[in-house]
């Protein structure tokens, strides 16, 4: 039953793949290798390693490892900075008055423009890449956190005052949990943005990782490799988003249910 439903939902995917396969074979165009060739190349590149390493090859390790590490490090750093600053700004109308124009300006700067700057200011490689990612993705986290902290229900705050919560308690038990739904929305946006900036950063400031592999494949006419990178990046984006949604559903169970009942 489930299988039938899945087929009903997904039928266009195999159809597209087959059509793509036929079209690319007929065209014989080097830029567009048939999907079968791309898939074979992906297996060769990344999944022909020893079983002890879950079939992952050395190259898979050197392509995915640093990229994922940068992605998560940049995301985590932006999350910590963005949430901390956002709670502070959201709790103080005065502070947000002073900082609003600067935040809007910072958010509007297209992050790729700063890559050459970070490269000159910081070392080539990880520091410049992290700076690019953090600067680019901190804005949605910051703005969402500010909004969340600013709009905590007045009665939640008054209850905290009545029962004499300490400042720390008020922050960790009331304001941050209440702002959590919005913080999570910001974190999810930031995650997909982080993947984009990771690629930008690796292409410009990198010497390894998926972005680097993507560009070098293109430059060395390895088109199946290039397509392989695209496919794997799509899968990665899909997996990250799904994993995050799962986490969100778990952490914010109270939020969804609370909204359904009221």
């Amino acid at each position: 039953m489930n299988v039938i439903r899945a087929v009903g939902r997904l039928w266009l995917v195999p159809v597209t793949l087959v059509a793509w396969e036929i079209a690319t074979r007929a065209a014989g165009q080097p830029f567009f290798p048939p999907p079968s060739a791309t898939l074979a190349r992906m297996g060769e590149m990344w999944l022909s390693g020893p079983p002890a390493h879950l079939l992952l090859t050395e190259q898979a390790m050197s392509d995915f490892g640093p990229s994922l590490a940068r992605l998560f490090a940049g995301w985590a750093l932006a999350a910590v900075l963005g949430v901390a600053a956002g709670v502070a700004i959201g709790c103080s109308p005065r502070l947000s008055g002073y900082l609003d124009p600067l935040i809007h300006l910072g958010r509007a700067v297209p992050p790729p423009l700063l890559v050459p700057f970070f490269l000159a200011l910081l070392k080539l490689g990880t520091p410049a890449q992290l700076a690019t990612i953090v600067f680019g993705i901190i804005w949605p986290i910051l703005l969402n956190t500010i909004d969340g902290a600013r709009t905590v229900d007045r009665q939640h705050l008054e209850t905290a005052r009545i029962f004499g919560f300490s400042t720390a308690q008020r922050l960790t038990r009331v304001i941050v949990p209440a702002a959590m739904p919005k913080i999570f929305a910001g974190l999810r946006l930031a995650l997909s943005l982080a993947l984009i900036l990771l690629i930008v950063a690796e292409i410009f400031a990198g010497s390894g990782g998926l972005g680097y592999r993507l560009l070098s494949a293109q430059r060395t006419y390895l088109y199946a490799d290039m397509w392989g990178c695209l496919v794997v990046l799509g899968l990665l984006g899909y997996l990250l988003n799904s994993a995050f949604l799962l986490l969100e559903r778990r952490v914010l169970a109270w939020h969804r249910s609370a909204r359904q009942t009221t």
């Binding site: 009665q155 008054e158 009545i162 029962f163 919560f165 308690q169 939020h255």
Partner: peptide, 29 residues
């Protein structure tokens, strides 16, 4: 030495905590 019970319980109790934690939290003071 004062406590308040508000009309709007749904906005006064914290939905991210269990009943027991809601009751226990102020007792830290």
């Amino acid at each position: 030495n004062l406590a308040v019970v508000f009309q709007d319980y749904s906005r006064s109790l914290y939905p991210w905590m269990t009943a027991a934690n809601n009751v226990a939290l102020p007792l830290r003071r």
